[in-house]
Write a protein that binds this DNA or RNA. Structure first.
Lengths: 237, 237
DNA sequence: TCTCGTATAATTGTATACAATATACCTGCT
DNA sequence: AGCAGGTATATTGTATACAATTATACGAGA
């Protein structure tokens, strides 16, 4: 669990450490740094024009975000995500997104509700046109709205962590399949349940939404991308 | 979400940073540092005989564990837990402990099962004698066993985070009430459900176990200890 | 040719020095 | 008296220097 305060979040852009942290996170999530790749303090410091100190502090945070693993006196390595990890994450998310949707039904603001409707509408549009980037963007945003609407900083932060964690995986599977339409249909149903004030239904739909997302991943060859149990023996670089 | 690897966890005892990290965490959880208290880098460094560098790195980790909040260019403050936070945590834990118990039913090892039985048995004994410290210790351990038994590093780590997070609250309420017996009875029922292989039942019992724990907290005056919404305006030291 | 050990280089861990920022206090003005 | 501004002080942010550890290269010996 991490600091869940908005105003002073870990990624303040105005310190060197904050910039390093954001840059590295982005580079890891975007796939610039491969799994199990070693990150060298001096190399990264030189690239960004800073000393090792802010780099090291950024490392500590990345480690607790689960993006890298620091082995004492050896180095920092980009963490691998196993197929088992992904499965676990979706099991957990299924429950928590459901809880989130249930809470959001009571707490959502008018503005948030409107943005959610707009989101679903826009996603339909881009789906027609085949704009994959925008679809992915809207998908992320839909869940962010939900997280904000549940009115629980803790749940919001927890879900954001998990969500971010699977972005690396999603990027490799979402863009190449036809889940976009089904996913957005599910978004619409969740949105409608929330709008109708049916918390029970919203929860169930959100539960199922995650299960479907995971099933789709498996169908699209998750196992082929990530080994079954490669996490343990990653000491070799 | 944080690094969930066992071997090289954040709290390696052999580096100065690791020692500082552990010491500060213990001091915060034990209540030595009060809520909203400011932690000064030099003061802590001098107390432990180390420079500011390892202290700062430890701070970054404590921040992401949710124990302190770092305000850029100002300082590090022990985070406050509001009554709302506690409620949210128990809602989340209710779901995740349930999931954990369900998974553990399939995955638990013989050794873990035996330790769990022993745990319940011992807790009964200490309950009779009124050994409050041992009861609290066994309670923590029961949940730890469950976390280990679910065979999911991610779920285990997530639950451990939440569990640790509420320790500060629990210490103030558990020792003074009669929940010990009821709690251990619930542990026994969960244990028996797991032993019988009834995953559904184990999940439901674990769900309810958390709800009961929370209800008991409220009954014992949680609100009186923690303000309703004090988290936002903590800038004053 | 292979293995082992040693020297060397590379890398991380920590301490310290310096810079930037925030806070407290004091002075002078109205 | 009360407020504005500025200076001093304390504290955090960053860079650099040094120590400790680990990885690598190379050569001696079997």
């Amino acid at each position: 669990m991490t600091n869940y305060d908005k105003k002073y979040d870990a990624d303040d852009k105005y310190s060197l450490r904050g910039r390093v942290f954001q840059k590295l996170r982005e580079d890891i999530l975007s796939g610039r740094y491969k799994e199990h790749e070693e990150l060298k303090e001096v190399a990264i410091g030189e690239e960004l024009g800073v000393s090792r100190t802010p780099v090291r502090e950024a490392f500590r945070q990345l480690e607790l975000e689960g993006l890298i693993r620091i082995v004492p006196n050896k180095g920092a390595y980009v963490t691998g995500i196993t197929a088992k990890d992904v499965k676990d994450i979706y099991m957990i998310r299924s429950l928590l997104e459901g809880l989130c949707a249930r809470l959001a039904t009571e707490k959502i603001s008018k503005e948030q509700m409107e943005e959610m409707e707009e989101n679903v509408y826009l996603a339909d549009f881009h789906e027609e046109k085949g704009h994959l980037d925008q679809i992915a963007e809207l998908d992320n945003r839909f869940h962010d709205i939900l997280y904000e609407a549940c009115d629980s900083k803790l749940l919001e932060h927890t879900l954001r962590d998990f969500h971010r964690y699977v972005l690396r995986v999603r990027q490799k599977t979402l863009a190449t399949n036809t889940r976009g339409r089904a996913s957005n249909d599910e978004h619409r149903k969740i949105m409608e349940a929330i709008k109708a004030g049916d918390a029970e239904l919203a929860e169930k739909l959100a539960n199922q939404h995650m299960i479907n997302a995971y099933d789709n991943m498996v169908k699209n060859g998750l196992k082929e991308i990530y080994g079954e149990n490669t996490e343990e023996d990653t000491d070799k670089k």
